[in-house]
Amino acid sequence: MIKHFSSAALLLALALTATTASAHTGAHDIDGFISGLSHPFLSLDHLLVMLGVGLWASRLTPLNAGFTIAAFLSFMVCGAGLALSGLTIQGVETGILASVLIVGLLLSVSRRLPSLLVIGLLAGFAVLHGFAHGLEMPLAAAPVDYAVGFLLATASLHGIGLGLGAMLSYHRFGLRMSGYITSGLGLYLLFNA
């Protein structure tokens, strides 16, 4: 039981070491691969959503979990493409902050929700996260390197979430507790934006 709570404590510690969502639209270094690789770990909104997607996917069969993560990454690339094409989406930052809250709520729900609803929400969140970073990519010294680092870090956070989810699933309230923590931090981010 202590081991399961230590997993939740690790999630909270990772979240508390990240910075706020002000990391979008050029407020951080975007030089190349290293900045793309580090950003998801240092931005609280991105960290929480990516871990949350992995935690949520841990409830699924391995095949469906892999599909969910691949779909998220694909929709994130689509969002970046929309930004690079010059499309404008209003309220991206608010949507990103709301994604933290909603992913936390998805984790805290004990009953099964319709898969299409959850996948649709996650795809929408992926587009928003990708869009925000697609706006930054032209500012990077090496945009492709930045994107590769960013996608690699995002996939890594999904994998960490899957691992944490597997550990927390042995405890009756493990995933729900991570959802409560994520939701609380999402509310904090929304009210302090």
Rank of each mutant, 00 (worst) to 15 (best):
Thr19Trp: 14
Pro40Lys: 13
Phe33Gly: 02
Thr25Gln: 09
Ala9Ile: 15
His39Asn: 11
His24Arg: 05
Asp31Ser: 07
Thr25His: 11
Phe41Tyr: 07
Leu16Thr: 10
Leu11Pro: 01
Ser38Leu: 11
Leu12Gln: 15
Leu42Gln: 05
Ala27Asn: 12
His24Ile: 09
Ala27Cys: 06
Ser38Thr: 12
Ala23Ser: 14
Asp45Gly: 03
Ile30Pro: 00
Asp29Trp: 03
His28Gln: 09
His39Pro: 03
Thr25Arg: 10
His46Asn: 02
Leu11Tyr: 09
Ala9Trp: 14
Thr17Tyr: 05
Ala15Ser: 15
Ser43Cys: 12
Ala18Gly: 03
Ala13Arg: 13
His24Ala: 04
Gly36Cys: 01
Ile30Asp: 00
Pro40Val: 09
Ile30Lys: 01
Ala27Glu: 10
Thr19His: 14
Ser22Pro: 05
Ala18Gln: 06
Ala18Trp: 02
Phe33Lys: 01
Phe33His: 00
Ser43Glu: 09
Leu16Pro: 00
Leu10Gly: 07
Ala27Ser: 07
Gly32Cys: 00
Gly32Ile: 00
Ser43Phe: 09
Leu16Tyr: 09
Ala23Trp: 08
Leu44Gln: 10
Ser35Ala: 00
Leu11Glu: 03
Gly36Pro: 04
Gly32Ser: 00
Leu10Ile: 12
Thr19Asn: 14
Leu14Trp: 15
Ala18Phe: 03
Leu12Pro: 08
Leu42Met: 08
Ala21Phe: 08
Asp45Pro: 03
Asp45Met: 01
Leu14Ile: 13
Thr25Ser: 07
Asp29Met: 05
Leu11Asn: 02
Ala9Phe: 14
Ser35Pro: 00
Asp31Gly: 03
Ser22Leu: 12
Asp45Glu: 03
His39Ser: 13
Leu11Phe: 13
Ala13Asp: 14
Leu42Arg: 06
Ala9Cys: 13
Gly36Met: 03
His28Lys: 11
Asp45Tyr: 04
Thr19Gln: 14
Asp45Gln: 04
Leu37Val: 02
Asp29His: 06
Ala18Tyr: 00
